[in-house]
Every structure is written in C-alpha cells, then in structure tokens.
C-alpha cells in the first residue's frame, strides 16, 4: 500500500511535459530546416547586393553617351543598351512564336486527346527533350536552321543571325512550355469536362471553352516561364547569332545580333576579357542587373494578370 503511493507521483504540469530529449531533437530538426530555407535567401540577397554594387560603380562612372551609341562594343567603351535589349527581345519574341503554339498545342493534345498509353510514352519523351544541352541546339541552329530555314526565307540573311538563334531557343523552350501547360490542364477537375461533354459539347469545344479557361493561370505561368527561359538562354544565341565581339544596333532579325546573355558570356570569356580597360568588368554586372530587373517585372505583371483572369474551381 505504502509502496504504490510513493511510486505514483501526483499529477502536475511535469506529467505533461513530455520527453526532454525528444523536445530537443524536435528543435534541432526545426533548426536544420530553417537554416536550409534561410541559406537560399541569404545567397539570393548576396547576389542582388553584388549586382547592385558593381552596377552602381558602372552607372556612376559611365557617360550617358556611352549607353546610347551605335552598338554594343565594350572594347571600345560603347555600351549601347538598345542593341542588347532589342536583341534579347527579338530572340525572345521569335522563340515564343515558335514555342507557344507548339508547346500549347502539344499540351492540349496530351491532356485532352491522347489516350493514356500514348501520353505515357510522349510525356517522358517531352521531358527528355527538355534536357537537351543548349550547346547542341546552338550548333543545330547554326548548321541547319540558319541555312535550311532562315536563309531560304531571306536571301540576304547572314549565316549567323538572330532569327536562327530565336528559332533554336524556341525549340529549346517548347518542351518546357508544353510540360507546364499540360500539368495545368491536367489539374482541371474531370467533373468540368464531364459537365461539358454531358451538354453535348465536342472535344474541341470542351478544350477551348472549358479546360483552357479553367487552366488559364497555369497556361500563363507556362508562357512566362517560357519567356524567362528564352530571355535567359545564352548558348544558342552565343553560337548562332554570331556577335562574339560586339554588334551594331539592328532591328533586322536576319542580321547578326547580340543579346544581353550572349554579351555577358562574351564579356566573361572573350579575348577582350574581363580584365579589359575601363568599365568592361562592371558592364557585365550592369547587363546582369538589367536582365534581373526585366525578368522580375515580367513575373510581377504575370502574377497580376493571372490573379485577374483566374477562374476558381
């Protein structure tokens, strides 16, 4: 009798405190995951900081005339922004003209038309396509797209040209757009399709009037990711657009041209090396900042747009 009363401690807060070892372990695990999350933010912040600092050096020392001249020739201290921004825009527009119809079309087919077995084969193939090294596509753009497509479209096209680079980037972007778009359409509830078919709608009506509007946020996301990928693509442009040193300002897509990314690549690797005179080194960061701000704005606008048109289901 007396024994049992000793063993049973009175019920108190201590009884509900739990195992201290386990509590410590829980805290440690939480710490590890927090560190992982925090590290990515720290790295991001450091990147932005470095970009901003060098960009500031560049902007504060460069003369305005250098930023608005005949072309992008860092060796001669001519940093015409128009040349590389327009080059990037042209390449991206051409790329999306290729990637949007192809990618969205493939997505509609895979999601709405393909039988499960066909989809089971095509979707992995598409994802493998997405992992083709861009240097391979760059070479393909230069040796096949340029002579076989672009030079047939225009007699005066040079072998190196922005159009070939754009088409190459477009092919590179297509699987990415298709894959994200297909995911978006695949996540539209089956009940909505059934509702549509139950009303006597055909497949094409169901796809266009029900599935695509319901998936629009995902489709816009697919497009934006595609654009970001196209703007950021370097290797295809560096190989096929052919302006390794510099480039004159030009709106002609059949001409040689320079994009922001290719300009950075050639700055960092070319013979006019980063150690070059004056502000060459800093100009690299300047272009990087430009690219960063552009893609950021793109994402912000896309987000706004998606929020406005999204259909909640």
């Amino acid at each position: 009798m007396a024994d049992t009363s000793v063993e049973v401690a009175p019920f108190s807060v201590a009884s509900l405190r739990g195992n201290p070892g386990r509590i410590r372990k829980e805290a440690a695990i939480r710490g590890v995951f927090f560190a992982a999350a925090a590290l990515s933010i720290v790295i991001m912040a450091l990147i932005v900081l470095t970009l901003a600092r060098e960009t500031y050096t560049f902007v504060s020392q460069v003369e305005l005339a250098q930023l608005w001249s005949d072309g992008w020739f860092p060796r001669r201290a001519l940093y015409d922004i128009r040349t590389i921004v327009v080059g990037s825009v042209l390449v991206t527009v051409i790329a999306m003209l290729v990637a949007t119809p192809l990618g969205m079309g493939a997505a509609v087919y895979l999601s709405e038309y393909a039988r499960p077995r066909v989809r089971g084969v095509l979707k992995p193939v598409l994802e493998v396509l997405a992992s083709i090294p861009s240097v391979v596509l760059g070479f393909f753009a230069l040796t096949w797209i340029s002579p076989e497509i672009v030079q047939r479209l225009s007699d005066r096209a040079s072998l190196f040209n922005l159009a070939a680079a754009g088409i190459g980037v477009g092919i590179l972007t297509t699987p990415l757009v298709a894959s994200i778009a297909e995911d978006a359409m695949g996540s539209v509830p089956k009940a909505l399709r059934e509702a549509s078919y139950g009303m006597g709608a055909r497949k094409v009506t169901t796809s266009v009037r029900v599935v695509i509007p319901a998936a629009v946020s995902g489709l816009v996301a697919a497009f934006i990711v595609g654009v970001s990928r196209a703007i950021g693509e370097t290797m295809v442009v560096a190989i096929a657009a052919g302006a390794s040193g510099g480039s004159l300002f030009s709106l002609n897509v059949f001409d040689r041209g320079q994009t922001m990314t290719a300009a950075m690549a050639s700055l960092a690797t070319g013979t006019d090396a980063v150690v070059g005179a004056g502000l060459t080194f800093q100009s690299l960061f300047f272009v990087g900042s430009l690219l960063f701000v552009l893609t950021l704005l793109l994402n912000v606008f896309a987000d706004r747009y998606v929020r406005r048109v999204r259909q909640k289901y």
Partner: peptide
C-alpha cells in the same frame, strides 16, 4: 455521342458548375 448527349442531359453527383 455528341448528338446523343444533346438529347439526353446529365446532372452529376457533385454539383459541377463551370467556373464562369
């Protein structure tokens, strides 16, 4: 089947209005 379904409509288990 499209013609069939125009004459024979359906209401489903879970309400499935379009998000329109």
């Amino acid at each position: 089947p499209v013609e069939v379904r125009r004459r024979i409509g359906m209401v489903f288990q879970k309400p499935n209005p379009f998000p329109k």
